[in-house]
Structures are given as C-alpha cells and as structure tokens.
Design a binder for these strands. Sequence first.
DNA 1: CTCCTATTAGTACCAGGTAATAATATCAAC
DNA 2: GTTGATATTATTACCTGGTACTAATAGGAG
Lengths: 185, 185
Amino acid sequence: MKYAKADRQKKLMELLEENPLFTDRELADYFDVSIQTIRLDRMSMGIPEVRERTKNAASAYARLKSVSKGEVIGELVVLELNRYSESVMVTTPEMALERSKIIRGHFIFAQANSLAVALIDARNVLTGKANLTFHKIVHIGDKITARAVVKKKEKYRFLVQVNSYKDDELVFSGDFVLFAKEEVD
Amino acid sequence: MKYAKADRQKKLMELLEENPLFTDRELADYFDVSIQTIRLDRMSMGIPEVRERTKNAASAYARLKSVSKGEVIGELVVLELNRYSESVMVTTPEMALERSKIIRGHFIFAQANSLAVALIDARNVLTGKANLTFHKIVHIGDKITARAVVKKKEKYRFLVQVNSYKDDELVFSGDFVLFAKEEVD
DNA sequence: CTCCTATTAGTACCAGGTAATAATATCAAC
DNA sequence: GTTGATATTATTACCTGGTACTAATAGGAG
C-alpha cells in the first residue's frame, strides 16, 4: 500500500529532518512514486534540493567545529600556563535545545573544562572531578567569557576554578580536579 | 606576489580543512590562478570536489545530531518518570579529541545530564549543580550506558545520581541537582 | 460523464564538477 | 640564445542532481 499524499509529505519531512542527504531519486524509489511527485512535495513544503540541504548541514557542522579549533572550545584569549587563562565563546543555534533559544549546559561545561585542561602545562591532562554550578540560563548569541585560575598545584594533581560570565554576570562556575598523566592510549 | 606551488597547496589544504565549502572557482579567484590549476592541486593531494567535501561534513553533522534525537543525548532505553531512567550512547569520531581516539568529557557529561533532565516529570527542568567524577577514559566506538536514579525529591528540587558504564565498568558518575521551573524564556 | 486533484512525462537549462588532450608559460642549465 | 622540464592554462565532451515550465494522463466524488 502506497502512502496517501498527506502521509507521504509528513513522512518525507521527517526523513529529511533526520537525514538531509537523500536525493529525489532515492526518495522517489522509497515512496514508489515518480521523481516529479517528490519535487512537487518538496516545493509545496518549501524544502530545498539535496545540495542545498547538504550545504546547510555542512555549514552547521563548520560553525560548531570552528568553535573548537584545537583542543579548546571557544577562543583562547589569555594563557599564562599553570596560572591563569581566559576564553571567549559565542553561542550558536547548533548549541541550543531544539525549538528553543536556550544553550545546552554541556557546551558551557565544555568551554570551562577545555579551558581548565589547556591551562595545565603537561603532555596529557585528564579531568578527574568537577563541581559545577549553573547560575543563569545562556541563550543563542550570548558571548560567554570563561576565566580559569589554578588554585592548588601538586605534582600530578591540579585544582582549577573556572567562572563563566555573560557581560560580567556570572552564569556558571566550576571547580575542576585535573590530573597530569605521562602516557595515555 | 602569487604563491609558489608548494605554498599554495599547503594553504589550499588549510583553507579546505577549515571550510570545505569553497568551490574551485572561488579558490581560483582567491589564489589568482586558473581553475585547472586548482583542480590539479586537489588531484595531487587527493582532495575531492566541493559536493563530496560538503557531503562528508554534512554526514559528520548528521551522525552527531542523530545522537540527540529530541532532548536526550544518546538513546533513551528506560524511562520511569521521577524514578529511574537509562540511555545508551555509542561514541563517534566527531566526539573525540583531534587526532586521538579519546572522547571529550563533555559528551559523557551531556549524556548523563540530559538523561537526568529527562527523568524529571516537569515542563521545564534546569540543571543547578552537578558533581562529577570521571573514572576512566572513553574511546571512539565505546557503547556507554548511563543509569539515572532520583535520590531525593522536593517540590521544585530534585537530586539525581547518574552512573555511566562501558561494559559494566564504571567510567563516570555524577550527582545532579535539578530545578523544575514554571516559565522559562 | 465530468470536474478536480494528483501524478507522471518531457524538455531546455544550470552549477560544479570529472577526464582527457593540447597548447602555452616559466625558468634554469648549458 | 636554445633546449628541457615543470607548471599553468584552455578546450571539449560528459556526468549528477537538480530548477522551471508545459503538457499529458489517472482516479475518484458527485
């Protein structure tokens, strides 16, 4: 049994939302209709062609990746090894909860954690423990500045405190226990 | 002054690594050489065409996004609201540190945190505090099972404990303090 | 049987390539 | 200067996955 028009269009939308890479040819085969029907469906729902969809997904990925050039999430703006470091991250739509402008907490954590790790002058640094407090909600487009300070320093064990601000308003703070290791696989 | 061949190819590689969306035409204009030169450069370095590069970036994004259908990072396998929940996440290359097989900690945190949030039966749930311990390093391809239990439940305040395992080996544990809020912008 | 919606078909055109072949630059060495 | 080798540019035929448009069916509901 073939899909009715409405069902087909709904399913089509779902399919492409999940995987934007299908060509009209593939979709036509999947729904067992002609390629023109698929195109009419796309047109009526305002869905662009594969190459356009692919490009959109790719640039979303590029935006997300550009935030983490190297190991640090965000842009490292100050780095005094084993003392103090600072990074700035501008939040993008890719970091938000679906259909919302609220940034997922793990991106805030990621910025802080990667900054703390970068601060330590050792070949391999691992996060052991972390104590986090989320003070305020962060939204798409907010520019978050994270400041990390080494509080305690033993041979292989470091205590780093990170505070993250949006315009001087504290939105997040965390205490990190980091370990410097020699070899890691 | 134009680039020498070697410099041009090196720069070309860097450009495309950072942003795979440039067409040969754009690259030719950028380097002020013919389009054929750009193609010879790509060929000699084994770099595929734009549409191929775009598709690769897009599927990396699709893989990453497919991990978080809805709000939960990973796949929700058990959900007893306000009691217990469980999710499974298979780690992918996109989650790893660069040139490494080690998964970035914030993905492990993301799975646990989103699972804890999903567990609470309320319109809007926010993470207030979190106490994390990373016990073991997680690698690309590892299948991580997170188990969340509500430990304490007040009116608007919940205490959730999450333990994450790789094959029954504890790799992460966290205590989360969550708040149920009425309205959130 | 007819009207309407849905579907299918066909054509010209486009971007951004591959692949292959041929014609020029450029420059160093003799 | 002339000769070679390497680098660059040009040209052409062909490919995929479309857009945009026109026209021809198919299938039901009344």
